[in-house]
Design a protein around this nucleic acid. Structure first.
Lengths: 107, 107
DNA sequence: TTATTATTTTAATAATCGTTTAACAATTGA
DNA sequence: TCAATTGTTAAACGATTATTAAAATAATAA
């Protein structure tokens, strides 16, 4: 189970419009990810601002980067997201599957 | 599907140690919930600070309150949490169930 | 009504966060 | 090497957020 501080860090990283948009874009773009510049252009964000937000997402463990030539590719890492959801829904219904209100959870 | 601004609001609400602890406590405490004072005592938070955080959680739609005598009971509302998870994991693996890395998602 | 309990609101302060600008690094091609 | 491209870093600023203390509200009991 994730530590509370790590969960807060991940939630904080996603709790911002630009970063949420970046993350969602990466979630849909598979393991190859997208180049920083592509994302910046698509979301109409300045390079400097983009770097700032990437750093926050990376530091939270939500995305990973790799250099390819001049480009830096970013891709979503699902491990932290999974841990976050698990943490939030732990013991959500006292372990009673029948009355569970969370479709995303197997109680 | 939830609107981005609403998702950001919910994530922001949970992205704070005290509020995350409150929410988790309420997730495990069922539909009857807990009185504000009980939670404050359990988490060692001042009443004023507690009210401040309840307001944020309520405003995000994550908890609901009802008055019972002198006490105000708070309970988790799972609707927003479900919407939040759905939003984050939308098109997570191009709809390919086999390669999906999110156990919480049925792609 | 008066006092007590439970919670909320307001005001003030310190800390954190997001954006911009300008300067800096790294990679590639001429 | 020199110039162009891609991305990061640093400094400055305004805006937002969390906490505290004090005052105010709401419900009940004496």
């Amino acid at each position: 189970m994730m530590k509370p501080a790590q969960v807060v860090k991940a939630l904080s990283a996603l709790a911002q419009p630009t970063r949420l948009a970046i993350y969602r874009l990466l979630v849909t773009s598979g393991p190859e990810g997208m180049a920083a510049g592509q994302i910046a252009e698509k979301l109409k964000v300045s390079p400097a601002n983009m770097s700032f937000h990437f750093k926050t997402l990376s530091h939270a463990g939500l995305v990973e980067s790799r250099q390819e030539g001049r480009f830096v590719y970013y891709a979503a890492n699902f491990t932290v997201m999974n841990g976050m959801v698990d943490y939030l829904t732990e013991n959500c219904c006292g372990g009673d599957d029948a009355t569970c209100k969370l479709p995303s959870k197997k109680c």
